Computed example of a mutant assay.
Amino acid sequence: MTLIRHADCRRTETPNGVMTTLASPTQGDAGTAVWRVDMLPGRTGPLHTFDTEQVWSCLDGGATIDLGGRGLTVGPGDTVVMPAGVPRQVTTGAEGGFVAVVTAPGGSRVYNPEGAADDPCDIAPKGDERLVPPWIR
């Protein structure tokens, strides 16, 4: 059993918010990655795709999630299951941010869907390259 203290959680900041790793293969030796997303108001994350399923549970605020071309509006208490291989993009409202807890298999890799613009946050690599984001490692 591993106890991960809040003070020891890994935090990764991007232009859109902060991902706080609660558990992952390199933090607690977990097979599943669990992280908190604190996204700032009026932001749009990059269009990207993961090679594994993710489950997002909204704790506070709200967002619109473009999931494979389908717009989903989420608020506190809502959960979205994002299938592997489906492009997604999260946008928060101008007045409020978005807080969620997310789970995915450890080692999940992100990549750019075909035709996506370059990611200004550099979490989704260019071309066919795939990488494990810091909050999932």
Results as ranks from 00 to 15, higher is better:
Leu3Asn: 06
Ile4Cys: 06
Ala7His: 03
Ala7Gln: 05
Ala7Cys: 01
Asp8Ile: 09
Thr12Gly: 04
Thr12Trp: 09
Thr12Arg: 02
Pro15Ser: 12
Pro15Phe: 13
Asn16Asp: 10
Gly17Arg: 02
Gly17Phe: 04
Val18Arg: 01
Val18Pro: 05
Met19Thr: 02
Thr21Asp: 06
Leu22Lys: 10
Ala23Arg: 11
Pro25Ile: 15
Thr26Asn: 12
Thr26Leu: 11
Gln27Ile: 15
Gly28Val: 14
Asp29Gly: 10
Thr32Ala: 01
Val37His: 05
Asp38Ser: 08
Arg43Lys: 15
Pro46Asp: 13
Leu47Pro: 05
Leu47Met: 09
His48Ala: 12
Phe50Gln: 00
Asp51Met: 00
Gln54Arg: 13
Gln54Cys: 11
Val55His: 04
Ser57Arg: 05
Ser57Ile: 01
Gly62Val: 14
Leu67Tyr: 01
Leu67Pro: 06
Leu67Ile: 10
Arg70Phe: 03
Leu72Asp: 01
Thr73His: 09
Gly75Glu: 11
Pro76Tyr: 01
Pro76Thr: 14
Pro76Ala: 15
Gly77Asp: 11
Asp78Ser: 04
Asp78Ile: 03
Val80Glu: 06
Ala84Leu: 08
Ala84Tyr: 07
Val86Tyr: 03
Val86Ala: 08
Val86Leu: 07
Pro87Leu: 10
Gln89Ser: 10
Val90Leu: 15
Val90Lys: 09
Gly93Gln: 05
Glu95Ile: 04
Gly96Val: 12
Gly97Leu: 12
Phe98Met: 12
Ala100Thr: 09
Ala100Cys: 05
Val102Leu: 00
Thr103His: 00
Gly107Lys: 08
Ser108Tyr: 00
Val110Cys: 08
Asn112Phe: 00
Asn112Thr: 13
Asn112Ile: 03
Pro113Ser: 09
Glu114Val: 13
Glu114Gln: 13
Ala117Lys: 08
Cys121Met: 12
Cys121Thr: 14
Ala124Phe: 12
Asp128Gly: 01
Arg130Phe: 03
Pro134Ile: 02
Arg137Glu: 14
Arg137Gly: 05
